[in-house]
């Protein structure tokens, strides 16, 4: 579903991502772990076609994000670490805008908005302007907007930040459901317990370089993910 090959991106003279390669298959929840400034967000933004990169290639569902960005974006949903959306729109207008852009048929958008807004208990607030939303409500709206166009791949940057425990639990359920239906999820997190319980695969990035990747069992061995992560950080 997502193939990153030798991705390299520099800012000024500093390499933010250095020769990074990853493969994410359909049905997988892939966790992406690293300290602050390790290169997670840069990698994620490059995968979403938001940020250009110096060398390497990224393929989504077999298509290059460089040469076919629109086709890639059609099967992709991105949830950023800070859900800044159009404050001047109401929640429902924003969701309808996303559905228009992704050409979601009317009946389906109606049904999906009803389902996901209901699930995250946001239905009653959809008429309110986004400027009136709390951080958690904005995060929920960003998640709903990612799900309404039924993407194959969802890329999330710290998706659990700002969510209440109930919403976080529901999101985990949805992530599993999405992957069981043949989709894939690539997300970054600092909450190692969540990654450990939720992910099928995990990658650890340090100073822009991939230091460990594989199935959860391969990466952690007999230790906890936290122990492995801390050990790698100290090296």
């Amino acid at each position: 579903m997502l193939r990153i090959e030798h991705l390299t991106k520099s800012f000024g003279g500093k390499r933010a991502v250095d020769d990074l390669s990853l493969r994410i298959a359909p049905g997988q929840i892939y966790g992406f772990i690293g300290h602050n400034g390790a290169g997670k967000t840069t990698t994620i933004k490059a995968c979403c076609g938001i940020m250009s990169f110096d060398s390497g290639e990224i393929y989504l569902a077999g298509r290059s994000i460089k040469s076919e960005p629109l086709e890639c974006k059609r099967v992709l949903a991105y949830i950023p670490d800070n859900p800044d959306m159009y404050d001047f729109m109401s929640g429902i207008k924003y969701l309808n805008f996303i559905c228009d852009v992704f050409a979601v048929p009317r009946a389906e958008r109606q049904e999906r908005i009803h389902r996901y807004a209901g699930l995250f208990e946001l239905t009653g607030d959809l008429a309110e302007p986004i400027s009136a939303y709390s951080h958690g409500m904005k995060q929920k709206l960003a998640i709903i907007s990612a799900l309404v166009h039924a993407p194959k791949l969802i890329i999330m940057d710290e998706p659990f930040v700002g969510l209440d425990p109930v919403a976080a639990h529901k999101l985990k359920g949805l992530m599993r459901e999405h992957c069981d239906a043949g989709g894939a999820i690539f997300f970054s997190t600092h909450v190692l317990e969540v990654a450990e319980k939720l992910c099928d695969m995990v990658a650890i990035i340090k100073s822009g370089r991939l230091v460990k990747a594989g199935t959860m069992d391969e990466v952690r061995g007999d230790d906890s993910l936290e122990d492995v992560f801390l050990e790698l950080e100290e090296e």
Partner: peptide, 21 residues
């Protein structure tokens, strides 16, 4: 507080949606 009541949503193309935005 404005309470949302579900109603039929209007669909439009990407260009029109961007202009509306």
């Amino acid at each position: 507080k404005l309470v949302y009541r579900e109603r039929a949503l209007k669909a439009s193309g990407a260009g029109a949606a961007l202009l509306k935005k």
